[in-house]
C-alpha cells in the first residue's frame, strides 16, 4: 500500500529536472548541426522576450520599478539623494551606491544566484555615465536591485529596470539607459538568451546604451568572437536597446500622467 503510494507520488523537482535535461540535450544536438533551430519559447534568433515594466511598486522608496522579461523578474528600489555617512570625506559630486541581490528562490537550485558583487559593480559602471552626479554633492543615491526569478539575461534587465527606477525617483539623468545581451552559438547570434541558452553559449556580449545620446555606457564581452560578428552583435543590441527605451518612455509618461 505504502509502496504503491510512494510510486504514484508526483515529484515536481525531478520532473522539472528531467525537462531541463531534455531541453539541454536538444540544444546540444542543434548546436552540433550548427543550423537554425527553434528556441524553447518559440522566438526567432533576433526576437526579445515579451517585456512588462512598471514604476512605483515600492511605496517606501524614492523611486522604484518592476520588470518582467519572460521568466526573469526584477524589482529595483532607489533611495535618496540622502546624506552620506559622516565618516565619508566631502565630495563635490554625489555618490551612486549599487547593490544587486538574489532571492533564495530565484534559481532552480536554492541559493545559487550569480556573484552579487560583480553584478553590483557592473550595474554601477553602466549607470554612472548616465546619472548627473554633480547635481547632488555630499549625498548618496542607493540603488537596490532584487532578482525575484532568474530566467536568463539578468544583468541587462537589472540595468534597464534601475534606469527606470532612477527616472521615477527624479534623479537627474543625461538619458535613460537600456541594456540587452546576445549569445553566440557557432555562427548564430541570438538575442536576449534564457538561462538554458546561456549555459551552452560560446560567447556573450552585453551592451548598456543611451539611445538619445547614442552612447554606450558599458560593453561586456566573454568567449570567442570574430570582428565581424562583434559588429553585428553590437548593432543588434543597440537596435534592441532603442526599442526597449520606447517602452521605458511610455511607462514614465503613464506614471506621470497618473500622478496628475
Amino acid at each position: 500500500m505504502s509502496a504503491a503510494a510512494t510510486a504514484g507520488t508526483y515529484s515536481p523537482a525531478s520532473a522539472a529536472g528531467e525537462k531541463r535535461r531534455e531541453r539541454k540535450e536538444e540544444l546540444r544536438r542543434h548546436l552540433a548541426e550548427d543550423a537554425d533551430w527553434p528556441r524553447a519559447d518559440g522566438r526567432s534568433f533576433h526576437d526579445c522576450r515579451p517585456a512588462f515594466m512598471q514604476t512605483g511598486p515600492t511605496t517606501a522608496a524614492s523611486g522604484s520599478a518592476y520588470a518582467e522579461f519572460g521568466k526573469t523578474k526584477v524589482i529595483v528600489s532607489v533611495f535618496g539623494p540622502r546624506e552620506s555617512k559622516k565618516a565619508m570625506l566631502y565630495s563635490d559630486t554625489g555618490r551612486l551606491n549599487c547593490n544587486v541581490s538574489y532571492t533564495t528562490f530565484a534559481t532552480p537550485i536554492r541559493g545559487q544566484g550569480t556573484d552579487n558583487k560583480e553584478y553590483s559593480a557592473m550595474l554601477h559602471k553602466a549607470l554612472e555615465g548616465a546619472v548627473m552626479l554633480h547635481t547632488f554633492p555630499k549625498t548618496t543615491v542607493d540603488v537596490f536591485a532584487l532578482v525575484l526569478e532568474s530566467g536568463g539575461s539578468d544583468l541587462p534587465i537589472i540595468i534597464s529596470c534601475a534606469s527606470l527606477a532612477l527616472a521615477d525617483a527624479g534623479i537627474m539623468m543625461y538619458d535613460l539607459v537600456t541594456s540587452v545581451s546576445v549569445s553566440c552559438f557557432g555562427k548564430n547570434i541570438i538575442i536576449d538568451p534564457t538561462s538554458d541558452e546561456e549555459a551552452w553559449q560560446d560567447g556573450s556580449l552585453m551592451v548598456a546604451y543611451m539611445p538619445a545620446r547614442k552612447e554606450i555606457t558599458q560593453l561586456t564581452l566573454t568567449g570567442e568572437w570574430s570582428d565581424g560578428k562583434i559588429t553585428n552583435a553590437v548593432e543588434l543590441c543597440m537596435d534592441a536597446c532603442s526599442k526597449l527605451c520606447d517602452i521605458l518612455r511610455e511607462r514614465l509618461k503613464d506614471a506621470s500622467s497618473l500622478a496628475e
Binding site: S62, A167, A169, G170, M172, Y174, A255, S256, E260
Partner: peptide, 25 residues
C-alpha cells in the same frame, strides 16, 4: 535643450522653460 528628469514640460511667458514633476523627495 534636453530634459534631465521625467515630468511635464512647462512654459512661463515669455521664455522660461522647466520640467514639472512629482516626487517623494
Amino acid at each position: 535643450i534636453q530634459a534631465t528628469s521625467a515630468g511635464r514640460l512647462r512654459l512661463s511667458k515669455p521664455s522660461k522653460y522647466w520640467v514639472e514633476s512629482s516626487q517623494k523627495r
